[in-house]
Design a protein around this nucleic acid. Structure first.
Lengths: 105, 105
DNA sequence: TTTATTAATCAAAAAAAATTGATTAATTGC
DNA sequence: GCAATTAATCAATTTTTTTTGATTAATAAA
């Protein structure tokens, strides 16, 4: 059995969680989705489906990946699901320069 | 034929280049490789192969992905290839907090 | 109640990425 | 020259991710 220092175990856990977030960001379409959400402030799937010209199921799939990685937030009102950017997380991960892409002000 | 504003075209190009960089970062093993490089300052494939317990071909593959995404730099001296972190690019992409993981001082 | 809208999920297929083991090429040391 | 070392690349396989079209469930509107 292989020994492993505590420091390395916690580092591995850290890398695992970042892997998930970077995977979510590692897609041109998902970056566009984040940008659209930033511009609109809040969007539902059907809005995105129009502006991005993508079928609903594809959007739901990509939104789920962004949601699981905590890059966006979801609030359901009635039949609609409204998505917003998770600014805190985005700022935590990305450089100042990059964050600007996903900032409305 | 679909029209597309100039702004959106250049944004798409931007997202494309970031997709590549995030893809490179979207792997636990590659993040570990970057960490090892940071710690050692400079490493060759055979060093990494030992410290990370990975076969040479696998390492060459992952190093190439990091290199293509410009997250690391390569310098060949004799039979050896020495890899270093591309601090400039890493700092450009990642938050202060995250960069610390890949900083030796 | 019936019909339409919204969006999540599912299963199958397609596409992309990673692993594996081997080959190749260049360099070093004897 | 010859053997050993280093590392890139290749082809085949495996694994993972994405796409696609359909189904489901919930809400809203007529």
């Amino acid at each position: 059995m292989k020994e492993m220092p505590v420091k390395d175990i916690s580092l591995n856990t850290t890398f695992q969680s970042y892997q998930k977030k970077f995977k979510a960001l590692a897609d041109e379409r998902r970056l566009q989705i984040m940008y659209e959400i930033t511009q609109a402030g809040e969007v539902c799937v059907c809005d995105l489906s129009e502006t991005m010209d993508l079928p609903q199921s594809k959007l739901s799939y990509h939104l789920r990946i962004l949601l699981d990685a905590q890059m966006i937030l979801k609030e359901t009102r009635g039949t609609w699901s409204y998505y917003t950017l998770n600014d805190e997380q985005v700022n935590h991960i990305l450089s100042e320069e990059l964050c600007c892409l996903f900032r409305s002000d």
